[in-house]
Design a protein around this nucleic acid. Structure first.
Lengths: 343, 343
DNA sequence: GGCATTAGCCGAAACGTTTCGGTTGTTGTG
DNA sequence: CACAACAACCGAAACGTTTCGGCTAATGCC
């Protein structure tokens, strides 16, 4: 492996200048920069990251710790995250460490150990909790750079990328109410998840402005799998007063809900309306449902690029104003939602 | 962050001795070791990995590069790999970098860049190709430590962990032949994948020893998804001479195959036998099929621990004899396989 | 008691990089 | 012409660790 010193000898120029040339400092002549760049390519030079980090604190490594227990049910979204983040970070010349936390390990402790190793410049925090997330509190206290996919409060002072989940819950509910639905079920992710809590608040807000009562029996916060979706739907069909419409937190849940509805000889749309949020995961595209699924749409994949940006911004200047990004959501109307049947 | 020097001062002992104590060298007294360990815990000391790597070459970081294009179809197995490997490596105090290779990038080039950065001690190579895999050739040439999940030749001289896929193909086929099946279809992973190629060889070998002809129309090497499984099965049912049994490469394919069989009003087992290989992925447990699926069983999860072991062994001594591991496979008989119906 | 052996310790150098504080030689300004 | 300003360069120190070679004092042996 070629080193700065090799380049320096090869070019008859000091190590200092080689380093500065490579890093684009302005007290090296254009000509020299050119020569250095060329030699670097020729000798296959690549900066030794350990040395760089040791000296300057910049390792070009970020980490994402995943809670094995919490993510087991939903490989699709986790997978999208790992691949997406790794790709965008690679493009920015930084490496992504994936650290799986075994069940029952203390999250804060895990972050603490990782941070202390002096290897990791920043963290991507995923799946924040609805109550104040202790991991976020810890990282904030320690002054470790991080960025969150989602958020654990309405207006955070840390960098995050999120969609307006309150609005999602509201839009979904309002759309159904506008068509005349009055018993609307909500089947969404676990109550501990911040996004799920936000959507529930949006759902309640919509009910309230529409003058509809809130019925706890109609909301289910559960693991977001097809199987669970179908089980919950079965339970919903059994209740004394059936919902005329159901909101699904993602397309997996929606798939299960569809299955149960047809298994009961009913039809989505005409008998029971189904609406969902679609985060663009490949397994169940909302357009492929029969009938096609009405959704609020916002691809998870859109979050990775901004997520990398806000984290890297925070790393390169810790006291710069906090950057965050809100991603767009749009309502796509299809055939799974109809006015309630008159019975 | 506490450093060795902090500890040294705190204890009134040289940096050298602190380092040696922490690393368990034998020329430091038990008493000192004790004291040092205690102080380390107290001050929250954790070795600076950059410095360690710079000096000694041991970074405690390994990488896994994933081919986005090749893995998109099968999030389950990739997810199992990322989580499983990350967990076992974490337990061994080493971090896993996940590097997603964008579509169309040159694999060898990607490994080369990563290796040159001087950060990564070794690679986990997944999904080896059936023809001599260029990534493996490159890493071998460069003398970079690596371990392969699978293998690109029958008797490799590099560290790997694999199951005997030739035997899997053979067992599956022989089991069906023993019951009297004579038209046996094989639906397995892509032809480029080493495991798929090996199983096909096992299938052919079994046919040959049983005196049965090989019919290329009966074998399909395809992406291993439920959807593709059901499509292939539909095609198979359309052929002039239907197979009486079909072998599925995993339980996803099997799920699709089951779906198509019942959609055609046929019954698995009595009308058409289905047998599969089950790598223990959570989505479609073979026991939950109706009727329960006969399989060769070998959990992918069993590979991660040995994989970490053989890689770490290679890293800690590059010229030690190559360690590899073959994992057990067992045939589990259930109800999806019956003698062919007489018609 | 003399001598070799050993347990336990230490100083200093080295890994490859970045950066601070210079030193040149050239150009522009009065 | 004297001097300031500036562009372009350089040496050396530092980051935190590991390790080589050497040192001291205690022990064992004859």
């Amino acid at each position: 492996m070629a080193t700065l010193r090799d380049l320096s000898k090869h070019l008859g120029i000091s190590v200092t200048q080689v380093s500065r040339a490579l890093n684009g400092h302005d007290d090296v002549s254009a000509a020299t920069k050119q020569r250095v760049a060329e030699a670097a390519r020729e000798l296959g030079y690549s900066a030794n990251r350990s040395a760089r980090m040791l000296k300057s604190g910049r390792s070009g490594i970020v980490a994402m710790v995943i809670d094995t227990a919490a993510e087991r049910d939903v490989p699709d979204v986790l997978m999208a995250g790992v691949i997406g983040l790794s790709t965008v970070f690679a493009r920015r010349d930084t490496q992504l460490i994936v650290h799986a936390m075994p069940e029952g390990a203390d999250p804060v402790d895990t972050y603490a150990k990782l941070a202390r190793s002096g290897l990791i410049e920043g963290f991507i925090v995923v799946n924040p909790q609805s109550a104040a997330d202790p991991r976020i509190a810890f990282l904030t206290d320690e002054g470790v750079p991080f960025a969150v996919h989602g958020r654990d409060r309405t207006a955070p002072d840390y960098p995050f990328v999120d969609i307006d989940n309150h609005a999602v819950g509201n839009m979904l509910t309002t759309h159904l109410m506008t068509l005349g639905h009055r018993r609307i079920a909500l089947v969404d992710g676990p109550a501990e998840a911040a996004f799920s809590a936000a959507r529930l608040r949006g759902y309640r807000a919509a009910l309230e402005t529409g003058g509809l009562p809130f019925d706890p029996q109609l909301v289910h916060q559960v693991p977001m799998t097809e199987l669970v979706g179908s089980q919950i739907m079965a339970a919903l069909l059994d209740t004394s007063v059936r919902p005329t419409a159901v909101i699904a937190g993602n397309t997996m849940l929606a798939a299960g809900i569809y299955a149960t509805i047809s298994a009961h000889g009913l039809h989505v749309g005409t008998d029971i309306s189904v609406i969902a949020h679609d985060d663009g995961l490949p397994r169940h595209p909302s357009a492929d449902f029969v009938p096609a699924l009405t959704v609020t749409e916002s691809a998870i994949a859109d979050a990775f690029e901004p997520l990398a940006d806000v984290l890297l911004a925070r790393i390169s200047d810790r006291r710069a104003p906090t950057q965050s990004r809100m991603l767009a959501v749009r309502l796509v109307q299809r055939n799974s939602v109809q006015p309630p049947s008159q019975r």
